[in-house]
Amino acid sequence: MKPAFGNRPHDPSPSRAGGFGAGLARWTRRLIAGAVLMAVVLVGGTAFRVWQVARIDDTRPADAIVVLGAAQYSGTPSSVFEARLEQAYKLYKRGVAPQIITVGGKQEGDEYTEAASGKMYLTDRGIPSSAITAVETGSDTLLSIDAVSAEMSSQGINSAVLVSDPWHSLRTRTMARDTGLQAWTAPTRQGPAVFTRESQLHGIARETGALLWYQLTHFSADFPYTAGQ
């Protein structure tokens, strides 16, 4: 005799196993899609903030104007560095701060540091040497900001207007504030960093990645930041 229907042994049917597998695959796809969406929102939001802060010119009075270094050649600033120094010169002449701090070390084989060449450029423009402090250390943004923070602390001052390229502003400001400085930005509006739409997009993309890396690790993503400038 055949067993009654209700007395059959329990045996999961292939359709149930297939349904479980399909459900798992569906949830896996949803998790992946959610992760991708979060990544897109994070990257897009950070890129927007890089662009937004790049447009800010905050020239309220401060203790110092800080010029982030860039490449120099035998004491002559590169076009990128010169644009930053010219912005610092204008801010000083407007009375934004009583002194300028130039910062940046030197690459192997260089005779001058970025900070020293920046100071020479500004004194040649007529700013008194006594109003310029050269912090001759720092091979990337984070090391430079740490060196500036230490110098300002030794002088008993705490507020700074940071001068760099527009796209570099948010990361520089974030690092400065993390050291305890009161910092805001007034970036240059001239030079190679802002010449073309391509250079602007490249700068935003680079700084978006570098800022996300810093926020994740608290290390600099510069290799070094002066490379090619």
Rank of each mutant, 00 (worst) to 15 (best):
W27T: 11
W27R: 15
W27P: 01
W27H: 10
W27E: 13
T28C: 09
T28F: 06
R30C: 04
R30E: 01
R30V: 05
L31E: 04
I32E: 02
I32T: 02
I32A: 05
A33N: 03
A33H: 02
A33S: 09
G34Q: 08
A35P: 04
A35H: 00
V36L: 13
V36T: 06
V36Y: 00
L37N: 02
M38C: 09
M38P: 00
V41N: 03
G44E: 03
G45M: 07
T46D: 07
T46P: 08
T46F: 08
A47H: 07
A47R: 11
A47S: 13
A47T: 06
F48D: 10
F48G: 07
R49Y: 05
R49C: 04
V50L: 10
V50D: 07
W51L: 13
W51V: 12
W51G: 10
Q52A: 13
Q52K: 12
V53A: 04
R55S: 12
R55T: 05
D57P: 03
D57H: 11
D57N: 11
T59K: 15
R60L: 15
P61G: 14
A62Q: 14
A62G: 10
A62F: 07
A62Y: 05
D63V: 05
D63A: 13
D63Q: 13
D63C: 12
A64Q: 14
I65D: 05
I65G: 08
V66R: 15
V66H: 15
V67G: 15
